[in-house]
């Protein structure tokens, strides 16, 4: 049982972080805060992938003399790409927030709903 906890606590805390991000996205009406919640969720997914690639006693995947065990480099490659794409989507979302502010002069979801009868 203790072994199981030591072996899995990492995943559980990552899931807690993920759920905090999801909660922020669902329950908060402010659009910037929603985007930050989405980013928290995204970073926890990165943790999940990097955790899966970690090897006990392994070194960073850079070939060096006298190192036998390396961590799995493939999740690192995936997540490097994901981080950069994540920033691109964040920038796009923030640009949409600026446009919403120009059109509705508010970035609170409830107020936008009250203003726009088509929603």
């Amino acid at each position: 049982m203790m072994d199981f906890i030591i072996g899995h606590y990492n995943y559980w805390i990552v899931i807690v972080l993920m759920m905090v991000g999801l909660y922020t996205v669902i329950s908060r009406g402010n659009l910037i805060k929603k985007i930050i919640g989405l980013n928290i969720f995204q970073v926890s997914v990165f943790f999940l992938y990097i955790s899966l690639g970690t090897v006990e006693g392994g070194a960073a995947p850079i070939i060096a003399e006298g190192v036998k065990v390396y961590s799995n480099p493939l999740p690192h490659v995936l997540i490097l790409t994901a981080i950069v794409v994540g920033v691109a989507t964040t920038a796009l979302a923030l640009a949409l927030v600026v446009r919403i502010k120009e059109s509705y002069s508010t970035i609170e979801e409830d107020e936008i709903h009250n203003l726009d009868h088509s929603l």
Binding site: N39, F46, I50, A60, H76, L80, I83, V87, T90
Partner: peptide
């Protein structure tokens, strides 16, 4: 977790550029 490349990118792009954009 032995991922220095990811750490560099996260520190530069996540902590740097994202914060500036926000």
């Amino acid at each position: 977790m032995d991922a220095p490349d990811v750490a560099f990118t996260e520190a530069a792009v996540g902590a740097g550029i994202s914060t500036v954009l926000m």
